[in-house]
Design a protein around this nucleic acid. Structure first.
Lengths: 336, 336
DNA sequence: AACGTTGTCGGGAACGATTGCACAGATTTA
DNA sequence: TAAATCTGTGCAATCGTTCCCGACAACGTT
């Protein structure tokens, strides 16, 4: 069995009390310089580390934050996680990552797990299936701090950080229009996700501004965020079988963009001859793809950093916070 | 502040003692059915969850395992993590993921952090920079259970799980040979990594078996596992500047394979006209790449599952274990 | 000589949950 | 009827750490 050293071990070895050892290690003024030196040296020698569970129990906080994302294999999220870790480690916080795989049930379980005292706060990006946020509501009401990033819950009052989804979607759609496409479809995630709504708005606005009609048949949802291949394939097939078949598609997510290309390939749909495509994606191998994908890129790393900074400020605030920020960062259109 | 409910809260509300409440929740025989019912209903109502820190302190274990990988953005690792989580959750373990970004220093810090009592065991894949494993050795000697996967430490006696790297490398190299290439270079990670050594052996064996000489100038290492673009670019440039320039390259890793394609593209090296390429990769978008990459795929998900199962068996074993397994899983060659 | 200061240190309670033990009251047994 | 057994519950110790109280020297002051 793995038995780390405790204060008691040091105290016994040095013939002191645990309180003296504790104080020596915390560099209290009431311990003599000589004792401090002895204790510190011995602690160093055996590589003593305080038991974090005991500390958490005593301090009633764990110095760790929980992160809920749909998938770490998603480039947007893995970049955001890197941003999260960069800030959290700096401020002495541990990061616990959990994945929902876009499942509402999994999200509930993960959040319950994280909430039950082991984390001081939550960094949340909702799953595609989630429309009811009461599991988060109740925890938030009871005082668990949380900050939303990317996929935010409108009905929970706290800090939020998103990309400028509407503008990004507008630019991507406008790019397709400028390329000469007139029948532009929109493939997106589930309809209740904040990012879906905003991106749809940007898409509609671009159509409107360029005098193109919005065709409801051109709008396809994937309620599971493209987690299942069939879901994407069916959506694409429905688009292709329309009598007034679209000539381009604007895709609203990282996983969907890749999934869409795979479906096109499998269905032998030539891009961009049969169908042009542009979409949201943070993949770093976009220009290696065939066909290359013109994409809207979100500042994922920065979003992770900002969200973490906001959360830690909430956690460490000595007074309750009633003013909440909603920060919106610009996307960039990578043209290929 | 977020103050979860405790046994004391329930006891006070119901006019019982904490011990009675505790026993009622654990369904001990010595509590009357009536009391149990009252306690259970109330606990359910307020959604009581025992404080995991208090439990860890008492039980002297945390029911959580730490995972050390280089990057979650790497498809091999993200798939392995999914395998790890699938088993761990089933058995009631929490998973804490940390990234080294191929840095030895970061690896040491992460492992120290995880080890200091908060995890019951470690699932380790070494960073590219790591050659000295004494930071793991000392913890292992003191009884912290660990299982290595993919990048293993030869000098630590415990369970290990790897892909059949030698065979995979052999097949990939042989594939290039069968395609008619005769001057095959090898781009790999740092020289001390177990996977590098094994893959190099497979590469050499394939050359030998087909009567091709091994040219040391065709062998290029990336000590940081391709974390820096320059590292890969320099290696590739050196290969291209050789008087007897290679006509193909076998790449030994996921990140390197992608990195190599990016460099080729930036240097305007046509694939496979100027240079053929095949390598280890678990990316799910391989056949969307331009050029498509014939790749050796590792059973990442299964490796994660098996490693986790091994680790949990070690953790929960009532007797010390002295017999250790080294499990080797076959790779598959995806030809494109 | 009696008192207050100051500098060092130890004792013990607390954090939340579990559990061996004690004990009251009810029931059964000798 | 008294003793033994059984039920249901509470007390207190424990895990490792911190921190409030004191204890007790060795001083300096009056």
């Amino acid at each position: 069995m793995f038995e780390p050293f405790t204060l008691k071990d040091i105290a016994k070895a040095l013939g002191l009390s645990t309180s003296t050892v504790s104080r020596a290690l915390r560099d209290t003024h009431e311990i003599s310089a000589e004792t401090k030196k002895i204790v510190l040296e011995y602690a160093q020698k055996i590589n003593y580390k305080p038991n974090p569970n005991a500390l958490s129990l005593k301090e009633r906080r764990s110095k760790s934050i929980g992160v809920i994302v749909s998938e770490v294999a998603n480039h947007y999220f893995s970049q955001a996680i890197n941003g999260i870790e960069s800030i959290a480690y700096d401020k002495g916080y541990h990061v616990i990552i959990t994945q929902t795989h876009e499942s509402y049930e999994r999200e509930k379980i993960n959040i319950q797990h994280l909430a039950s005292r082991s984390v001081d706060g939550l960094l949340v990006s909702l799953s595609a299936e989630t429309s009811d946020t009461s599991h988060l509501q109740s925890l938030h009401k009871r005082g668990l701090q949380m900050v939303f990033f990317d996929r935010v819950a409108e009905d929970i009052e706290t800090h939020k950080i998103t990309a400028n989804n509407e503008k990004g979607a507008f630019e991507a759609t406008e790019y397709l229009i400028r390329q000469g496409y007139k029948k532009i479809a929109h493939l997106t995630s589930s309809d209740h996700l904040s990012i879906s709504i905003e991106r749809l708005n940007g898409y509609k606005k671009a159509l409107e501004q360029h005098g193109l009609p919005f065709n409801p048949h051109y709008l396809k949802y994937c309620p599971h965020g493209g987690m299942f291949y069939d879901e994407v394939e069916n959506a694409v097939k429905e688009l292709m079988n329309l009598s007034d078949r679209p000539d381009a598609v604007f895709v609203a997510g990282d996983r969907l963009s890749v999934g869409c290309l795979v479906v096109f390939k499998n269905l032998n749909i030539q891009v961009p001859k049969d169908m042009a495509i542009t979409g949201f994606s943070n993949s770093d191998v976009l220009d290696l793809m065939h066909p290359p994908l013109t994409a809207v890129r979100q500042p994922a790393f920065e979003m992770g950093q900002i969200a973490t900074d906001m959360l830690i400020r909430l956690i460490e605030s000595r007074y309750p916070v009633y003013e909440f920020e909603k920060k919106v960062l610009d996307t960039s259109l990578l043209i290929r």
